[in-house]
Amino acid sequence: MLKPEISWTDFEKVDIRTGTIVAVSDFPAAKNPSYQLEIDFGTLGKRKSSAQITDLYTKENLVGIQILAVVNFPKKQIANFMSECLVLGIYGNNNEVVLISPIQKVENGSYLG
C-alpha cells in the first residue's frame, strides 16, 4: 500500500545522515531481539540506537559498517536504554531488516538529499 503523498517541504524536515557503527552490544532487556549500537556521525558526534537487526548481522560484522539514520527524531526510551537516532533498513521477505548503506564510503555526518 502506498502511503499518503507528502510535500517536498515535509521531506526536507527529515534529517538523514551517514554514520559508522563503532560499537555493538547485546540488548537482553529489549522486548524483541536487538542490539545496542554506538554510531559516529562525524561533526554531529556519536549517538546510540537500538536496532532489531539480529537476524542477519552479528555484533562482529556490524562494527565499521556505514549506515543511514534519521538523527532529528526525539530520543526514545526502549527498556533501560535511550535511543538517540533511527537506523534505516528495508524489511526482507521474512521480516528481517537489511541495513541501508552507501555503496561508496562517505564522510560521517553527510546528509541524504
Score class of each variant (00 low, 15 high):
N72Y: 13
I103G: 04
Y35V: 02
L86F: 12
M1V: 13
S50M: 11
K13D: 11
D10W: 09
A79R: 09
M82G: 00
Q77T: 14
Y111T: 14
Q52S: 13
F41W: 08
I39L: 02
V98Q: 12
I16D: 01
A51C: 12
A23H: 10
G19H: 01
L56T: 05
V24Y: 07
Y35S: 07
T18R: 02
Q104G: 05
Y111G: 14
G113C: 07
L88T: 07
P102Q: 11
I16F: 01
E5M: 11
P102R: 11
V14E: 07
G113R: 13
Q66R: 08
P74W: 07
A30I: 06
L86C: 11
A30K: 08
K76Q: 15
I100Y: 06
A69L: 06
L2G: 06
F27N: 08
I39T: 04
T58F: 04
I103F: 11
E38D: 11
V97Q: 02
I67C: 08
V14G: 00
R17S: 06
L99N: 11
I53P: 01
T58Y: 00
I100T: 15
W8Q: 13
G113T: 14
Q66W: 05
Q52M: 12
G64E: 09
G113M: 07
K13C: 09
R47D: 01
R17A: 03
F81S: 03
P33Q: 03
V98H: 15
V87D: 01
Y57F: 14
V97E: 06
I21L: 04
T54P: 02
N72C: 09
E107C: 05
F73K: 09
K75Y: 13
D40Q: 03
S50D: 01
S7L: 12
T43S: 14
P28W: 08
G109T: 06
Y111N: 14
F27Q: 09
S110W: 02
I53Y: 02
I53F: 09
F81P: 07
I16V: 15
K13M: 09
K31R: 14
L37C: 10
E96R: 10
N93E: 15
E12P: 01
Y57N: 12
E96F: 05
V70I: 15
T18D: 00
F81T: 12
Q52K: 13
I16W: 01
K13I: 04
L62H: 07
T20I: 14
R47H: 14
